[in-house]
Nucleic acid binder design. Structure first.
Lengths: 354, 354
DNA sequence: CTCGGGTGTGGCACCGGTTCCACACCTCCG
DNA sequence: CGGAGGTGTGGAACCGGTGCCACACCCGAG
């Protein structure tokens, strides 16, 4: 519609001067700069990012690959990223891919490979080497937030250590019959994060010389949702004889489902059953859930800041960097155990029942 | 990196022939088309969308404005839109704007006004006339999904009618002391949708000649979240003398909060209190919540289909259209009352206590 | 006074595609 | 047999910016 040449004509200067005046690069006298800016405002000129990208090779757009938007953790991360990107003048293009398969390949080989994004952030996705190569081969940074997989720089919490901490909290309270509601990797997403949390649970149990209750090492797989936790907990708590006195759930949503299942079965909380979750869900306080807090909104911001650094954009300084100003991919992101009313020492009766 | 001229050279044809062969427009002999396609595959050529948009004016990118990502309804809508867009070969650029103010203006005046999106979908946003004008003035379609406000074509449920239906369900069960947990418009988002639901509640009460309980016409404002519903319900249920026997909550999340508050106060459900929600949240079944179901994932698909129609793209035929093949913006989207265990007739005692 | 360097501006090529137009060729029909 | 019309291809302009380069001017230093 209105191009920079229109602005230039109206301001009585050349295209190049108009470009310099509007972008702030190169020499322009203050007087002409003002004339150009006014002319631009007068005709409602807005630069075409396409044309600019074509020559500069920068799109000011970041692609975000995320398996879910409607699980609390992912939604928070996404909101954190979007706000930070918007503030930096960047667009966020969303690729919501739940599964592996042709759709996933199409996203990496076509959508992300085109020159439409400057960088890629993969949230909770186990990237394959090939996927990382496709993106980096086109000269774009790709970073992972959570998830596992080789190749890409990663920002992540210490899932194994945090899971161990959660389990140790139960052990310290005196529990001996402890079960783990482990996340079942729906699709490929974040499957191995669940494996890390399992390992942390096993670490703590082994060290305390405790045998997990029930079959399969005291772990029951649950889909990482509230109904998933409910179903798995029903199964786990079904037989009073083998019932654990405490549960470590792989996520708060799973923990909420387990709480609901206990309620349904008439098991009082925390009297007969302690539950600890993982995430720091916004409802955890209301339900009195002890949990490992992580801070997904902040993580989203850190991920964007890291990408901005890799792209050479100026950023704030609140995020972790190494001394040379690059993002610090080695230091784990912050987690914190928050003890609430869902965990307590096991009752005398349940200890005897052992 | 690799441009179409490289492909052309390798295939031994001109740029224009290569372009025709790859895009499928214009005459190309089958033999040359094959040669070009092979050459492209050989060097891993992927067309630059920027260059194409520059001349065609189409970006194959849709901007989505949405106030929250992390509330169930909005998350579902977003996932529905993203899948549908991806299938159509379109990108989704996300603008998560919770509030009015300079950020919001910046999104409309700068981000959306640029030639980077072909169309805009605003979800649960009360668009101002100016905002619609900015987008349409640049020749791009803008449609609203839910929300209110003038100007833009809108796809929406019948909020008022559905709220009335929910309230009538309680009245039909015999309740007379009914309260409404009304949504407080956090920021500007969807405020007036909450007003429509209030009006539907009032319609039903008036028609049944019932006086709402409590001050302010039996309505207590709640933030549209679970903790919001909890806090508001604590307030509403605090005085046994004025306690309602039934609550219509403006959303399922508010209803869940109210259920939690009732539990905390020792009010048995549904014996002493019936609750009906609004949305058809994925946890409603598990908590036995009677609710007005709507289908946000499908709504997201419909919204995208409507935009595709406006852009002249071929689409599936599952969505509502008028006889002339344009999106049907007049027919309300589907809702359905689903009765579960959270609603029942009031107990004899509570009727006497009246 | 001359020369060097900083400042301000315009011309022009270029990014990577699409599309219009001209042209060549072939076929079919009157 | 000539012309109309369909098919296949290349040349070149163009989309809307950016950035290199040349040039003009001014000022201060030698």
């Amino acid at each position: 519609m209105t191009a920079i040449s229109d602005v230039a004509r109206l301001a009585g200067v050349s295209k190049s001067t108009a470009s310099r005046a509007l972008s702030g690069r190169g020499y322009v006298s203050e007087a002409t700069r003002l004339r150009v800016v006014e002319a631009a405002a007068e005709i409602g000129y807005i630069a075409s990012p396409n044309a600019a990208s074509l020559v500069t090779g920068r799109t000011k757009n970041v692609g975000v690959v995320i398996p879910f938007v409607n699980r609390w953790f992912f939604g928070e991360v996404l909101e954190g990223m979007e706000r930070t990107l918007l503030a930096a003048g960047y667009d966020l293009t969303l690729y919501n891919l739940a599964l592996s398969g042709p759709d996933r390949d199409r996203v990496f080989d076509f959508f992300l490979a085109r020159k439409r994004v400057d960088a890629v952030i993969a949230v909770g996705v186990d990237l394959t080497e090939r996927e990382v190569e496709v993106i980096e081969g086109r000269g774009k940074p790709i970073i992972a937030l959570g998830g596992t997989g080789p190749g890409a720089p990663r920002l992540a919490i210490d899932d194994r250590g945090a899971a161990r901490l959660a389990t140790e909290h139960l052990i310290d309270l005196g529990h001996e019959r402890i079960a783990h509601l482990a996340g079942a990797g729906a699709g490929s997403a974040a499957r191995s994060v669940q494996a890390l949390r399992r390992a942390g649970f096993a670490d703590a149990m082994r060290e305390a010389d405790l045998h997990p209750v029930g079959e399969s090492d005291g772990m029951v797989e649950a889909e990482m949702t509230l109904p998933g936790g409910y179903a798995a907990a029903l199964q786990l708590l079904g037989h009073p004889a083998t019932r654990p006195t405490a549960i470590f759930a792989a996520s708060d949503e799973v923990a909420f489902g387990a709480m609901r299942a206990a309620e349904r079965l008439g098991i009082s909380l925390p009297g007969s059953l302690s539950i600890v979750g993982f995430d720091g869900h916004e409802h955890a306080e209301l339900y009195g859930l002890t949990t490992i807090e992580q801070f997904p909104r902040v993580q989203g911001r850190f991920a964007v800041d890291a990408v901005m650094r890799l792209l050479g954009e100026p950023t704030g300084d609140a995020d972790p960097v190494t001394p040379d100003g690059l993002p610090d991919f080695d230091r784990p992101l912050e987690t914190r155990l928050v003890v609430r009313s869902s965990t307590t020492a096991p009752s005398a009766r349940s200890l005897v029942a052992r």
